[in-house]
Amino acid sequence: MGVGIEVINLNAWYGTNHTLQDINLHIPANHATALIGPSGCGKSTFVRCLNRMHETNPVGRVTGTVRIGDLDIYADAKPVQIRRRVGMVFQRPNPFPTMSIYDNVAAGLKLNGYSNRRALDEIVEKSLRNSALWDEVKDDLKKKSGASLSGGQQQRLCIARALAVDPEVLLMDEPASALDPVSTSKIEDLIFQLKSQYTIVIVTHNMQQAARVAEKTGFFLNGRMVEFDSTHKIFTNPSDKRTEDYITGRFG
């Protein structure tokens, strides 16, 4: 089951570049939330702050509060614990090329010392079914490597890998940006199914996609959150002029 995310006065820097400025928002549990905005406005940086990946960058710095469920992730926990609870799918598929499909999916659990074979088999199958990849790979789970799949299959494999550790929150940074329309719609279907069980945050450049999958949408501009509201409101009747300009294609 997913949990909600509360972001309070979040600021982030790359060196001296003040990338995120005073972000405040509430991401509801068990819903999909889309983040849109022009390239370079800080969407990726924002989602990376939600699982403390931002600080893995040698020049990355964060201040402010992020609460996931009851947990203040910057005050009460270690990054490793957070990342086990908050799964992430990256913009470009990054399966482990030296591992089989099975091992790719099981990687997160094996990493944390999980070794029950039977249970592992079940989890791998369930995750691959959830990511709509099972039927395509079930015959050579242990024969084929993660790198032997197509780009779209690789991305779904990465989603399965993230699902296998049963996260409470799933962060997806433009998961479909490198994919063809068929793979894209598979991933959208997937988000649609998954959001009843997980809290999903999805970054996208594709506004139809945001409109299709997300209940809530946030619009970022130059490191600030300009507007955050129900997707319907954002796309039909935005309160802010800049949001309107962006979604009607006047800039960005």
Partner: peptide, 15 residues
């Protein structure tokens, strides 16, 4: 080894 491989492992909760 590409940076994305390191990030993939870290995002799974690796030390």
């Amino acid at each position: 080894v590409p940076h994305s491989q390191r990030e993939a492992v870290l995002a799974l909760g690796a030390t």
